[in-house]
Amino acid sequence: MKSKSAFTPLRAALWLPLVALVGLCIVFFQSLGFSPRNVLPSAMLDKPLPEFSLPELSSGIQATHLDMPKEAFLLNVWATWCFPCREEHPVLMSIAESGINIVGLNYKDEDAKAVTWLNTIGDPYQLNLVDRTGDYGVELGVYGVPATYIVDQNGVIRYKHIGPITDEDWEQKLSDIFLSLAKKQARA
């Protein structure tokens, strides 16, 4: 005797796909209303960097916010697996040459590869934090690499740039934001 199929689902279950789809469409429509993708989510803007204790790349010593530069700096999120980071690298080198502090956040990468990268094509970073798991990146709101944050002398995030910084980005926009922060600091 054939047993009755267990594969004919209950009638109520037949509505589940529709319910799931409706839920999904609500998320789709609402997410279209969010701000354009290259703007920092308002939740992070003008807030201090989230607390951290991360190893430094070359020394392996744990670093915290106390080890950050005492003046405004760029926090650059990068990785050796990130193709645009390679294009951004020379721009960072020239920014670093002009005397601006850049802190690196080496994101979901391998230490050995990161060290080789810096030794081969040059190291623009004053120090490099290692975020092996990407947990700190989540706290920072990193959703694409590279990303660069402008952080002021008090450790407060003032701006976020998504994607590689080009020469034009720096000259036309970011350097102005950065310089205005530096001026404020000088006045204070």
Partner: peptide, 13 residues
């Protein structure tokens, strides 16, 4: 996308 929706605009990857 879900994360952004639940938190009202925060992002993750």
């Amino acid at each position: 996308l879900f994360y952004e929706w639940l938190t009202g605009g925060e992002r993750t990857s």
